[in-house]
């Protein structure tokens, strides 16, 4: 299931730790990179690679919020709703996004383009309000900035 390259990376990562179990989080990251989310089938597969029971892998996947337990939109919007961002208007921007995308927090648009989540502090409190989209941070947000970004993502998706 993994590409040749990813299988090679798994071997290299296993060498970093005295026990193969420690490679679980990094290998789950590789899986999410390749498949976009972590299905039960993937969990069985990863367990097999590292010699871990399925239940252990399941327990780990469900403990950590960043592993997607179901497919997410092409743009996974994670808006910080914690205190410093809230003090600077995060609530309004989250509502604005819900309105703009026509979905509620926790949902994905029907075209599969956007998922909207509210997340905890992302370590950008000095540039609040802010959000993470896939791997990237977008800081000092206003409703105009958010609108422009959505436009930008829509254009990117068409290319």
């Amino acid at each position: 299931m993994f590409t040749e390259e990813n299988l090679r990376r798994v071997e290299e990562i296993k060498n970093r730790y005295p026990k193969p179990m420690a490679a679980l989080l990094p290998v789950l990251w590789i899986a999410q990179e390749q498949f976009g989310w972590i299905s039960e089938e993937t969990m069985h597969y990863v367990g097999g690679l590292l010699g871990l029971p399925f239940n252990h892998v399941l327990g780990v996947v469900t403990f950590y919020t960043m592993y997607n337990k179901k497919p997410v939109g092409k743009y996974n919007i994670q808006f910080c709703g914690n205190i410093s961002c809230m003090l600077r208007g995060a609530d309004n921007l989250i509502e604005h996004l819900e309105h703009k995308l026509g979905i509620k927090v926790g949902e994905t648009t029907s075209d599969g383009l956007f998922t909207l989540k509210e997340v905890e502090c992302l370590g950008s409190c000095g540039t609040a309000p802010m959000m993470q989209v896939n791997n990237d941070y977008y800081e000092d947000l206003t409703s105009e900035k958010v609108d422009n970004l959505l436009e930008e993502f829509r254009k990117q998706a068409q290319r």
């Binding site: 914690n82 205190i83 410093s84 905890e120 502090c121 370590g123 950008s124 409190c125 000095g126």
Partner: peptide, 10 residues
Amino acid sequence: ESEPGSFKDR
């Protein structure tokens, strides 16, 4: 670094 209000180690 996940304590709300902390963004220094970054």
